[in-house]
Structures are given as structure tokens and as C-alpha cells.
């Protein structure tokens, strides 16, 4: 469908084009069934950054307030990228891993503590 406007060929500006982020891109991360974080998190990242650097420098500090963060081992985790199963290559860049602007990553971890009973 498309908009029914008062004049022909109406098109609003695409406000969140990657060009507007000054060389960076957005990456969202949802730690599945860990609802202490009320929503998936939004990160600004350099697409040339390696996946392992993204985990160590960007994601790990953000997840630190969670009591399970100490037990979290990325080597044991599963990932999904934009709805598809995903096996990241740690040394490759976000871009080379296929993580595009406004991609959503899902982090799926095995049971780490009793907090899982309430999906915290």
C-alpha cells in the first residue's frame, strides 16, 4: 500500500539513513528472555569494528548491570541476525559479518541462574 496524500508522489525524508550517523551505524541487541533490560539495546558502532571488539568494548559494559553478566560466556551463546540463525566470525568486521545498519542481533544463552524463572 502507499499513502493517500493531498498531492502526487508524496514521500517523507528517510530520517535514519546511515549517512546521518557520521560514519557509524546502528546495531540493536536483544538478550532474549532477559527482561531486566526492558527493551533491546541500541548501539552506535563503526561498521569496520570487529565482532569480538564489539562484544568486548560495546556489549559487555552495557550488560554489566545484569547479575548474570559474570556467568555469561559468549562462546556458549547462540546468535540470530535479523531473524536468521547466525554464526559470527569474531575477527571479521560487523560489515563483513553481514551486520548492516539497523540490524538486530539476538543473544540466546543457556540457563545461567534462577533468575531465568521470571525471565529476568
Amino acid at each position: 500500500m502507499s499513502v493517500r496524500a493531498n498531492y502526487a508522489n508524496y514521500q517523507g525524508p528517510v530520517r535514519d539513513r546511515v549517512e546521518n550517523f557520521h560514519g557509524n551505524q546502528l546495531v540493536y541487541v536483544m538478550w532474549e528472555r532477559h527482561l531486566l533490560f526492558c527493551a533491546p539495546l541500541t548501539f552506535l558502532a563503526d561498521p569496520a569494528m570487529s565482532f569480538e571488539a564489539f562484544l568486548a568494548e560495546v556489549l559487555t559494559p552495557a550488560l554489566a548491570p545484569h547479575p548474570e553478566s559474570e556467568a555469561l560466556d559468549f562462546a556458549e551463546a547462540q546468535w540470530r541476525l535479523d531473524g536468521e540463525a547466525f554464526e559470527p566470525r569474531g575477527e571479521a568486521s560487523l560489515a563483513d559479518n553481514g551486520i548492516g545498519h539497523k540490524s538486530q542481533l539476538r543473544l540466546i544463552t543457556p540457563r545461567l541462574s534462577d533468575l531465568a524463572d521470571a525471565a529476568i
Binding site: 500500500m1 502507499s2 499513502v3 493517500r4 496524500a5 508524496y10 514521500q11 517523507g12 525524508p13 528517510v14 530520517r15 535514519d16 546521518n20 550517523f21 557520521h22 557509524n24 546502528l26 541500541t42 552506535l44
Partner: peptide
């Protein structure tokens, strides 16, 4: 969104606006 994508692509999302500076 699907019904009028031309309208909603321009949403002023506060989080994205902060990250655009």
C-alpha cells in the same frame, strides 16, 4: 507502517536523534 510507508520513514525517533548528534 506498511499501509503508509512514505509517511512513517520520517519518524523523529528520540534515540536515533540523540545518536545522530
Amino acid at each position: 507502517f506498511h499501509h503508509e510507508p512514505e509517511k512513517y520513514v520520517q519518524a523523529w525517533l528520540p534515540v536515533h536523534q540523540i545518536l545522530q548528534g
